[in-house]
Amino acid sequence: MERHNGRNADAPLVSAIIPTRDRAGLVGRAVASALAQTHAPLEVIVVDDGSTDDTPAVLAAFCEPRLTVVRLDPGRGVSAARNAGLAVARGAYVALLDSDDEWLPAKTARQVAFMREKGLAISQTREIWMRGGRRVNPGNAHAKPDGFFFEKALERCLVSPSTVLCTREFFQEVGGFDEGLPACEDYDLWLRALLRHPVGLLAEDLAVRHGGRPDQLSAIHVGQDLYRIRSMLGLLGRDDLSPWHVSCIKKELRRKALCYAKGCLKRDKPEEAARVLALAEAAAGPLGPAGETAP
């Protein structure tokens, strides 16, 4: 791992971690939005997952002492990139920002004040959704909740990485991102978080989420329920789950396994359907035929 460090001697309050790979046309916007935060002191850590385009040159052009670039061997993935950033972060708070998104200038200032007031270890803000350069309104299913919403978080990912701020102690307690998951690594982390902590919601639009491009993980990794299934199977191996948590996980595991298997059968992949159904059934009990609605 190659690292170029240009940080100030004084420890920052907030460490912004930006993973990236081959996004020379986008990462500059993300970095600029982090450096433009009204809250100081702040450090920005960009973890380059082996870019082969002009990303290094774009980052070098900033000549900014608050910017650190960590360069990884190619292809280790977004989880490894975020974990590498966590390993060198010095801030009392850690903020996540995807390299294709951006923050509004008051994001970290407003969020630090909010978390201090509420005594939170993790929080998120609302965000503006952009798709193809146009603003779109997220559906009701994507409305951000507040507090302990473990059961809802099993159904879909309800926390956006680019809106998150956590204390350093949060990651020490909960752990980092699962590097064995090529996608849905954030879904997995938020579930582990919600076993112990409420996720606070600062109900202000303080981040901009840009979507609709073919290089995003949601487009690259189709059938993402497979990774959510793997996450839930991992959760069931923990010894700190309440009976209610176990019941919620098994219910959603059955539902997702049946839906995933049904999709496999439509794509003429019966072996994959059978494999995943067997894994889910061993962990959650009888599932029924792949074409049926989950119990």
Rank of each mutant, 00 (worst) to 15 (best):
Q216F: 08
Q216G: 08
L217G: 11
A219V: 13
I220Y: 00
I220K: 01
V222Y: 00
D225M: 11
D225Y: 12
D225N: 14
D225G: 01
L226H: 02
Y227G: 05
Y227F: 15
R228Q: 12
R228M: 11
I229G: 07
I229R: 03
R230W: 05
R230P: 00
S231T: 15
M232Y: 00
L233P: 03
L233N: 08
L233T: 06
G234D: 12
L235T: 07
L235S: 07
L236R: 05
L236H: 06
L236P: 01
L236Q: 08
G237V: 04
R238V: 10
R238A: 12
D239R: 14
D240W: 09
L241S: 09
L241R: 04
L241K: 05
L241T: 08
P243H: 13
H245T: 10
H245F: 08
V246Q: 11
S247W: 04
S247N: 10
C248K: 02
C248R: 06
I249A: 05
K251Q: 13
K251W: 01
K251F: 05
E252H: 14
E252C: 08
L253Q: 05
L253P: 03
L253G: 06
L253A: 09
R254T: 09
R254W: 00
R254L: 06
R254N: 03
R254Y: 00
R255E: 09
K256R: 15
K256H: 12
A257D: 11
A257P: 08
L258E: 01
L258Q: 06
L258G: 07
L258Y: 01
C259I: 09
A261S: 15
C264I: 06
C264T: 04
C264R: 09
C264G: 04
L265S: 03
K266W: 13
K266Q: 15
R267S: 14
R267Y: 03
D268A: 15
K269E: 15
P270H: 06
E272T: 13
E272G: 06
A273H: 10
A273S: 11
A273T: 10
A273P: 07
A274P: 06
A274I: 04
R275Q: 12
R275G: 04
V276A: 03
L279D: 07
L279S: 07
E281D: 12
E281S: 14
A283M: 01
A283Q: 01
G285R: 03
G285I: 09
L287T: 08
G288L: 00
G288N: 01
G288D: 01
P289Y: 08
P289I: 08
A290Y: 05
A290I: 05
